[in-house]
Computed example of a mutant assay.
Amino acid sequence: MTHIIVPATSANLGPGFDSFGVAVSLYLDLEILQPASEWIITHELDGLPHDRSNLIIQTALELAPNLEPHHLKMTSEVPPARGLGSSSAAIVAGIELANFLGKLNLTADEKIQIASRIEGHPDNVMPAIVGDFVVGANVAGQVFWKQIPFPDACFVSVIPKRELKTTESRSVLPKELLFPEAVQASSIANVLLSALQQGDLTTAGKMMEADLFHEPYRATLIPEVVQLRKIAHEEKAYGTYLSGAGTTVMTVIASEYAPALVERVKNEMPDCLVHLTKVDKQGVRIVKAD
């Protein structure tokens, strides 16, 4: 059988709003089964369609309308509406499905351009496609992007058991920033990027927590950020930030300190799911199993 594996993604990393994204080791697995008379996708997620109106199939047919229908099976570790790129993972899976079945031979850049157009911005789709840490910008309708190796570290994902739609999370953001505040917010993102390029996670963590673009406004919707940040500081973490639009809160920490943080968060924040993850370096891939 053929499997399409897509990693979850964590966007923004604090000040890199709609521009920074990193792939993490939680996965959507799309198994391509036998051809069928109509498209059908088997899964166990509430509220998602099982027919051609599913986002994965919609995306595939947008690229290749004449694809032969197949029976598909999806399993996913990426929870919906939690700031871990669930819709981006579905879009990327759909692009890869069309690329594989339709023999489109798309390049990574072509996949990123298509996915960004469908998703609306590139931060989640870029790392889902190429893996690792990716920085991108949409300029005049074209996405310019660069993949950068993320320094060795663990990501502790803390996921509250409630959804938060991106539209609701964006509704609390200001329509504009004062010029001096925008300059400061941009400079914080610049230092974060430079620190990551130099492998300086101590400085990077401080910049993750100094965001002015979105976290001060979204923190009212996700109070777990403040609680987790306090715990993480006590457990020697580099930094804690709101993943995408939330509700997931992500902490970057050295691997030797990560297990203790995981256990403490499980004890002190029992209403949250906790995952210990690492950076996925591959992005979307095809795996063939017997």
Rank of each mutant, 00 (worst) to 15 (best):
A140M: 14
E68N: 09
E163H: 09
G136L: 04
P180H: 11
A189G: 07
T251V: 14
L273V: 00
D51A: 08
D18C: 11
D132P: 00
E176V: 11
N12P: 04
D123G: 02
D46H: 06
G47V: 06
P35A: 08
S88N: 06
G83R: 12
F17Q: 05
V226Q: 15
F100Y: 15
P69I: 07
Q198V: 02
S243T: 13
I188C: 02
K73H: 15
H121M: 09
I118Q: 03
M250E: 13
T203V: 07
N99Y: 06
G120K: 04
G136S: 10
G199Q: 02
E44F: 10
P127G: 03
M208F: 07
L26D: 09
A23G: 05
K111Q: 15
S86W: 06
G136M: 05
V156T: 10
E215V: 15
L177I: 12
V78M: 01
I148N: 01
I222Q: 14
I57M: 05
S76A: 01
T220R: 13
S171M: 07
L13R: 05
H71S: 14
I112W: 02
F100W: 11
N267W: 11
L228Q: 08
F133V: 01
L193Y: 02
S88D: 08
L72W: 03
P180Q: 09
V183H: 12
A8C: 09
V158E: 04
S194D: 04
S10V: 11
V274Q: 10
P122K: 09
G246D: 13
P15I: 05
I40K: 14
E215N: 10
A237W: 01
W145E: 05
S187T: 15
I40C: 13
G283I: 02
P15T: 03
S116D: 09
S76Y: 06
S87Q: 13
K161F: 01
L276W: 07
E181A: 14
V130P: 04
L221E: 07
G102Y: 06
I41V: 10
D132I: 00
Q113I: 01
I32H: 09
G120Q: 07
I5G: 04
A254F: 00
